[in-house]
Amino acid sequence: MKFLEYTNLDRLNEFMGHLNLGERTIKGCLEAYSCKHTGTDKRLSLSLENEILDYLGKSSDTDSSSPVEFLLSRSSRKALIYLVLTLYQMYPDYDFSTVKAHQFFSEESWDSFKQIFDAYMFEASKEWVERNEEGSLLEALYKALDEVVKLAECEIYVYNPDPDANPFLEKGAIWSFSFFFYNRKQKRVVSFRFCCISNLADEGFLTDTIAQADDEEIFNDMDI
């Protein structure tokens, strides 16, 4: 996998990188990767493939909704491996199990992505309109993604890992989403992570408040 630089993505990242909205901060990041193997990718890809085949060999589950059914397709296994390789590029120190990762990925449509974006990025979109005269934030995002991965040809995945083992989750996060736009023909992936962080938690306000409350309880029990 190779990181790809695009000016249109950089512009959106500059806007969404740290959008302070008072008590909350919106953070968004778009990253594009080529699926062509570089460095250790080939060895890791082979290891992930063997992990899947070993899992398939041991499993007798034939439920059409199970990971097995999805992983029986070579093209689906390839897509999953590219998504996991992208995760490794983003978080090289984190261990992503291919089989478990499948359980956390679900395919989405552009319409479902749009609904989530409109609902959770409403304030960010208002801020974009105030700063820019040419269209909405979603329109700018669509255009940028389309230029990089041709959305009409894309498979869109959302990644929802276990909250206790989520490398994307930041301290003080109110909500967080991770989408991946994968174009098989171009062999290219764009990741889009966006989240909302509580500035009160980020500044240690909640911790200080709890500590203060504890101190008051201690003093209440003391004769002064």
Rank of each mutant, 00 (worst) to 15 (best):
K2R: 15
Y6V: 00
N8K: 13
L9I: 03
R11F: 13
N20D: 15
N20Y: 08
L21N: 14
K27C: 15
L30I: 00
Y33F: 15
H37R: 08
R43S: 13
L46R: 12
L48G: 03
E49K: 07
I52G: 05
L56W: 04
S65G: 14
P67R: 10
P67C: 13
V68N: 02
E69S: 11
L71S: 04
R77M: 10
K78V: 01
L85Y: 05
L85V: 01
L87D: 11
Q89A: 14
Q89C: 14
M90S: 13
Y91V: 06
P92L: 13
Y94L: 09
Y94N: 09
D95G: 05
F96T: 07
T98Y: 07
V99M: 07
H102R: 14
Q103A: 04
F104K: 11
S106K: 15
W110S: 07
S112Y: 12
S112W: 12
Q115N: 08
I116Q: 13
E123M: 08
K126D: 11
V129F: 06
R131P: 03
N132R: 09
E134V: 06
L137T: 01
K143Y: 06
D146K: 07
E147G: 09
N160V: 08
P161E: 02
A165R: 12
L169N: 01
W175A: 12
S176R: 09
F179H: 10
F179I: 07
F181A: 10
F181K: 10
Y182E: 05
R184K: 11
R184V: 01
K187E: 15
V190C: 08
N199V: 04
D202F: 12
E203Y: 03
E203Q: 09
G204F: 13
I210C: 08
A211V: 01
Q212M: 10
E216D: 05
E216M: 08
I218A: 11
F219P: 00
D221I: 00
M222N: 06
